[in-house]
Design a protein around this nucleic acid. Structure first.
Lengths: 230, 230
DNA sequence: TAATGTATTTAGTGTGTCCTAAATTCTCTT
DNA sequence: AAGAGAATTTAGGACACACTAAATACATTA
C-alpha cells in the first residue's frame, strides 16, 4: 500500500494496532502496553510491532518509550474509538439485520471496519435503531467518540455462591468459544445465579435459563456480569 | 501487504485489475486489452500496470503477450466475476436496504467488495430478494459465476427519431453524471421516446416521464435501452 | 523502406508491512 | 552487585504496489 493521500487516513494494520493498544491499555487500567502484548494480539512478530509503533509515533498517534511500552495520544485514542465504533456497529448490524450468529460476526467486522465509510456505519446504526451495545455486550462509541464503560460490571469469577447477576458482556472473540457459550445460553441479558464454586481453580456452576452450567474458569473470566437489580 | 496465505486470495488492486480487464475485454468484444486502457481505468501509471499484469500472469489469471495486450484466463474470468458479483450485490443492497442514492453507491461498493465475504454477499442478496440487476441496470453474476448480458440492449444513440424504448442500463460510474441523469428520470425502467436527434453530433432529445430531456451525446452513449415491447 | 510518434516495458526508487537472526536493554534472582 | 533469562529493538531481507525516467518495440505515414 502506498502513501495514503487523504490526510489522517490510516492503513488497516495501523487501525488494528491502535485498536489493540486501546483495548489492552483499558484492560491494564491505563498502564503502558508492551510490544509483546501487541504482537500477541495482532498475530505478528514482536519486531514488526516495533516498526508499526514507530510509524504511529511519527504520526503522533501513540507515544513510545523504548523498552517501556506504548500509550495512545488523544488523537490516537480518537482514531481507535472511531475504528471501534465501526467494528461494533457492523457486528450489531450483521446480527440484527442480516441474521448472523453472534459467533461469526467478529472476523467479518474485522475486515469491513477498514473499508466502511462513516456514512455507511451511520446508516447501519440508524437502520437498527442506534444500538448502544454490540452483540457481545460491549458498548458502542458514539459518533462523537464518547464511550460509556459500565463501571459496575465484574467478571463472573468475582461472584460468590448464591449471588445473582445478569450477564452484561462476553469479552471473547473466538468463534468456537462463543458458539459454545451461546449453546449454554451464556449470552448478554441472561440472568444467572452462582450455584457452586469448585475449589482450587475449578469450574463455576451457574443456573442460567433454568439449567445448571459448568464453566471452566478461563471461560468464566471472560463473562462479565452486572449486579441483578430486583 | 505480505504474501497472502489463503490459496487463491487476491489483493484489492489485483481484484480491481481483473475486473477492469473483464470490463474492457467485454467492451472491446473480446479483443485483448492494452495496458494503457487499464492504466487509464485504474488511475495508475502504465508502468504500474505492466508490473501488476506480470504478477497476475504468474498466478495464471491472465495471459500477457508483451506489447500486444492482456487477456483473462478462465480462472481470471471466474475471479473477475466473483468480484463483480460482490460489487453489484453490495450496490443493490446499499440502495434497497440502506437508502443510498444510486449515485453514491459505486465508491462505497468499490471498497467493500474486497473485504466482504461470500457469506455476507449471499446474505445481502437474500435479504433483498436475490436481485438480478444492480441499481444501474447491470446484470449481477450468479453465485456460480454465470452472467446474462442482454443481447438486445443498445446505446440510446443507436435509436432513430420516433423510436420508443425502455432504459435498461446506465454504464457510467461518475456520481455527478449519475445524479444529473437521476434528476432527469433517466434511470433503468423508464420508458422513453426519441423526439429529436440534432445533427452533427448534437444532443438527443427524448421524452421521459412526460418531459422532454436533452442529452449530450457523451451522456446518451452511456445510456443503454432495450426495445419497448408493447 | 525509413522515419516518426506513440505505446509499452525496463530500470531504479520509495513506502508499508511483514519476517528472521542478532544485538541490546531490562529485570529479577542469587 | 552481577549474571541469567526474558523482552525489546536493530539489522537485513522480501514482497506488493506505486512512481518517474529511460529504453525499446510497434505501427503508420511519407
Amino acid at each position: 500500500m502506498t502513501a495514503l493521500h487523504e490526510p489522517g487516513a490510516l492503513t488497516a494494520p495501523a487501525e488494528d494496532c491502535l485498536k489493540a493498544v486501546y483495548d489492552i491499555e483499558r484492560a491494564r487500567q491505563g498502564a503502558a502496553v508492551t510490544t509483546n502484548d501487541l504482537a500477541h494480539r495482532l498475530g505478528v512478530a514482536p519486531a514488526s510491532v516495533t516498526g508499526m509503533v514507530k510509524r504511529l509515533a511519527d504520526q503522533g498517534l501513540v507515544t513510545h518509550e523504548p523498552y517501556h511500552g506504548v500509550r495512545l495520544t488523544d488523537r490516537g485514542r480518537r482514531a481507535a474509538l472511531r475504528t471501534l465504533r465501526r467494528h461494533r456497529v457492523i457486528e450489531t448490524y450483521l446480527v440484527q439485520a442480516l441474521g448472523y450468529p453472534w459467533d461469526r460476526v467478529h472476523d467479518e467486522a474485522e475486515r469491513l471496519e477498514h473499508s466502511a465509510s462513516d456514512e455507511l456505519v451511520d446508516r447501519m446504526a440508524a437502520a437498527i435503531g442506534e444500538p448502544t451495545v454490540d452483540p457481545h455486550g460491549a458498548p458502542i462509541p458514539t459518533r462523537e467518540g464518547g464511550i460509556v464503560e459500565d463501571a459496575a460490571v465484574r467478571p463472573l469469577t468475582a461472584l460468590a455462591v448464591g449471588d445473582r447477576a445478569m450477564i452484561a458482556r462476553v469479552t471473547d472473540e473466538d468463534g468456537d468459544r462463543l458458539r459454545y457459550l451461546g449453546s449454554l445460553r451464556i449470552t448478554p441479558g441472561t440472568r444467572i445465579e452462582v450455584v457452586e464454586q469448585e475449589p482450587f481453580g475449578g469450574a463455576i456452576v451457574v443456573r442460567a435459563g433454568g439449567k445448571l452450567r459448568r464453566l471452566a474458569p478461563a471461560l468464566a473470566a471472560q463473562v462479565l456480569v452486572s449486579p441483578a437489580r430486583d
